[in-house]
């Protein structure tokens, strides 16, 4: 009976693993094949890899798209980590009734679906365009501004601030450090792993964000990676080999982070729920 159960477990897990991995495998094989072989469903690696890479860089604006996505994701990550960790630390270390009420109100923002915010935000950036065109519609700034803090990140940093030894703060005060000195010189360096986890999840979310950039970025030279992939996928006569190459290359950053920093990756993903 137990033996039967164990065999069942192996079979079931193997099938689940194959289904999970298959699209990756297919994607990797397809990037080495000609478009026609991809549609034929070839499961054998071809010799087209270099050709596909060459075509990708020559016919598709992948480099500008990666630069745009990279700028947006990098700025978002730096600002979001700074603003959210200041707040998470502030809510925990300078606790008061009033601040707890504000904290709970901020958490409510997690329940607001983006579909509700999309139209008013678009109009808001429309009005901003009149006065400050450099952060208005169709600018990279407009693409990252609404994402530079999330309630989730504030919550995440507050949870980790709870585990931070309060004696270290007192020690800092005795040593004559100001409150910000304590934050930047003691808290930040001590919480490196928390920051790593938060950075991974924030960068990845930004790198993969689709709907807001779709709404706010209009000119082709502002295109981000998800917009590019989406457009390629919707094309009438797609070169499948090239598209697969584009997808592999743009998934590579997250894949590398995942394989080399799996622990932080999962921590960031799960937030403080443990």
């Amino acid at each position: 009976m137990t033996k039967f159960k164990r065999i069942f477990a192996y079979v079931f897990l193997t099938i689940a693993s194959i289904i999970s991995i298959f699209p990756f495998l297919w994607m990797l094989i397809s990037m080495t094949n000609k478009s026609i072989d991809v549609t034929r469903g070839s499961m054998l690696p071809g010799t087209q890899l270099l050709e596909n890479i060459k075509n990708l860089f020559q016919t598709v604006d992948i480099v500008p798209a990666m630069v745009n996505s990279g700028i947006i994701a990098l700025v978002t990550t730096v600002l979001a980590l700074l603003i959210a960790s200041l707040a998470g630390y502030g809510f925990e270390m300078f606790k008061s009734k009033k601040k707890d009420i504000i904290f709970n109100i901020l958490l409510l923002s997690m329940m607001i679906p983006f579909a509700v915010l999309m139209v008013p935000l678009y109009r808001m950036f429309g009005s901003i365009s009149q006065v400050m065109p450099f952060i208005g519609i169709d600018t990279l700034a407009a693409a990252f501004l609404p994402t530079i803090t999330t309630a989730f990140l504030i919550f995440f940093f507050r949870q980790s601030a709870k585990m931070f030894p309060k004696e270290m703060i007192e020690a800092g005060r005795i040593d004559g450090l100001g409150e910000f000195g304590i934050f930047f010189r003691i808290f930040m360096p001590t919480m490196k792993t928390t920051y790593a986890a938060a950075a991974i999840i924030t960068f990845m979310n930004s790198w993969n964000n689709y709907l807001w950039p779709l709404v706010i970025l209009q000119s082709p030279d502002k295109q981000t990676i998800p917009l590019l992939i989406s457009n390629l996928g919707a094309g009438y006569s797609p070169d499948y080999g090239v598209i697969m190459t584009a997808i592999v290359i743009t998934t590579l950053p997250t894949a590398l982070v995942f394989f080399f920093m799996q622990k932080h990756f999962v921590e960031g993903m799960m937030g403080s729920v443990k």
Binding site: L13, A16, S17, S20, I21, P23, F24, W26, M27, W207, N208, Y210, I225, P226, I229, S230, L232, G233, I243, I247, T250, T251, T254, A255, F258, V266, M269
Partner: peptide, 16 residues
């Protein structure tokens, strides 16, 4: 293996 799909972007996996 089973966790791996999480690393893909929603757009990329949709196209695949």
């Amino acid at each position: 293996a089973i966790f791996l799909p999480v690393i893909t972007s929603l757009v990329a996996y949709s196209v695949i």
